[in-house]
């Protein structure tokens, strides 16, 4: 199989691109199928890395900038890997005063990442949010859809370990 630039693909690369080829095979080479292809590719790979976008662009006969334009326009598409679990730390007033910062630091230390980043094992993505609306439980974090309140930095490892 040949890819962009006509270079021969290694066996490993071929294996990597195989699911994408399967997706592309189901669509005609038309611009109108770009969004469905991107949606399915993201479902398969978890995000849309550059090499996947390049491959999609050449397969659909579009320029990379066109594909990039669409990917960056819609909020659904991510160009960085996202974790299996999304941790949202509340930075509202009540949480801030009651040590939300310390909780955030504890989570950063535990996961070894900064806010907005994802762990190497792709298990966690860390984000900060303005207010979760649970000030009575401050400081609060959300992991996926569940809320965890009245946190102290000491409790952080235990809570995160449930998701490891």
């Amino acid at each position: 199989m040949e890819c962009c630039g006509g270079n021969k693909l290694t066996e490993k690369q071929e294996k990597y691109y195989a699911p994408l080829q399967k997706i592309l095979a189901r669509y005609e080479k038309k611009e109108r199928y770009l969004i469905p292809v991107l949606q399915e590719a993201q479902e398969e790979y978890g995000y849309l890395p550059e090499e996947i976008l390049t491959n999609i662009a050449s397969s659909l006969d579009l320029s990379l900038s066109q594909v990039y334009g669409v990917v960056t326009f819609y909020t659904q598409f991510h160009q960085e890997p996202r974790g299996k679990n999304i941790v949202r730390v509340c930075m509202g007033t009540a949480c801030h005063v009651r040590g939300g910062d310390k909780v955030l630091t504890a989570i950063k230390d535990e996961l070894g990442i900064e806010s907005g980043e994802t762990t190497k094992d792709l298990n966690f993505t860390l984000e900060t949010v303005a207010c979760i609306g649970a000030c009575g439980l401050a400081p609060v974090i959300m992991i996926n859809d569940s809320t965890h309140g009245r946190l102290t930095p000491e409790k952080v490892p235990e809570i995160l370990s449930e998701f490891k």
């Binding site: 038309k30 611009e31 109108r32 199928y33 770009l34 969004i35 334009g69 669409v70 326009f73 819609y74």
Partner: peptide, 9 residues
């Protein structure tokens, strides 16, 4: 525009 596969502008 979005159905056509473009940025939805």
């Amino acid at each position: 525009a979005s159905i056509e596969g473009k940025r939805g502008m």
